[in-house]
């Protein structure tokens, strides 16, 4: 199975235009070999970022998608070109971070297909891969273990020091943490990029504000079946009185022969 970035590098060399669908994980949109948009099932897209920020309503986004595209969105004046570019930039880099390391499960390329938010920012494939590597390195520098990235976020009930300083993202994480949601679920709830939540979570972990992830549960001891209960247990199966007897006639014959042999000895 070829990795996704080698596949993308090939499409970039061919200056391909179209959409690369990666199973159910996401879609990468290219225009003349440059990435224009990327969707990932795990991370919030640019539309979600814009709507969560309160800049554009969901209805306005739907209207623009159906007719007019980005030009209409900019004309209506609720969002500036800079903001639109920043939303696309953030969403694409975030999607790339979670999508690219995977192997291409049944990738399918459809030439000519475009995303309506594409064309705001053009990424070259090598640059995207480099930025993802840089981000991974940055995470590792803050807190080396990736265990917390997928585990439920569980803040400690009491901070280790007298006072703590939190960034905006960290505050939002702590407020939303319900002991069950994982960082990526929190990202979708808050409407922030998944990567910024991972950064916040790792910084919280480095500051000792998160409980360590639960060790995988030990295998449950199999329930003792009914018939294996000790004999004094009232629920134990009934046992016959006296020692167990074998009704085998061969034993009786053996005993008689033994008796006879012993008598002859004396």
């Amino acid at each position: 199975m070829t990795s996704l970035d080698t596949l993308l590098a090939g499409l970039a060399r061919e200056r391909a235009t179209g959409a690369l669908r990666v199973g159910r994980n996401g879609t990468i949109f290219l225009s003349e070999g440059r990435v224009t948009y990327m969707e990932c099932a795990q991370t919030p897209g640019a539309e979600r970022l814009l709507a969560a920020g309160g800049l554009v309503t969901e209805a306005a986004l739907r209207r623009a998608r159906a007719d007019g595209g980005c030009a209409r969105l900019l004309e209506e004046g609720c969002v500036t070109r800079g903001e639109l570019q920043y939303a696309v930039l953030g969403a694409v880099l975030d999607a790339a971070f979670f999508l690219l390391p995977g192997v291409g499960t049944r990738p399918k390329f459809r030439p000519g297909e475009q995303h309506w938010l594409g064309g705001q920012w053009f990424f070259d494939v090598a640059g995207l891969v480099r930025e993802c590597a840089r981000r991974r390195e940055q995470l590792a520098r803050i807190w080396p273990s990736a265990d917390l990235d997928t585990a439920p976020v569980r803040p400690v009930p009491c901070p280790p020091g007298q006072s703590v300083t939190l960034s905006k993202a960290q505050w939002e994480i702590l407020v939303r943490a319900d002991q069950v949601s994982t960082p990526l679920e929190l990202a979708r709830q808050i409407g922030r990029s998944g990567y910024s939540i991972l950064l916040g979570v790792r910084r919280l972990a480095a500051a000792g504000l998160l409980a360590p992830p639960e060790a995988p549960a030990l295998p449950k001891r199999a329930r003792r079946p009914e018939d294996r209960r000790p004999p004094h247990d009232p629920r134990a199966a009934h046992q016959p009185l006296g020692p167990q007897v074998t009704g085998d006639p061969a034993d009786l014959a053996l005993l008689l022969r033994l008796k006879k042999a012993l008598e002859e000895l004396t």
Binding site: L49, L50, A52, G53, G54, L55, E83, Y86, A87, G90, S167, K168, A169, G191, R192, S193, S196
Partner: peptide, 8 residues
């Protein structure tokens, strides 16, 4: 400050 992500 931007509406959706940490500042530029």
């Amino acid at each position: 400050d931007t509406a959706f992500e940490g500042p530029l």
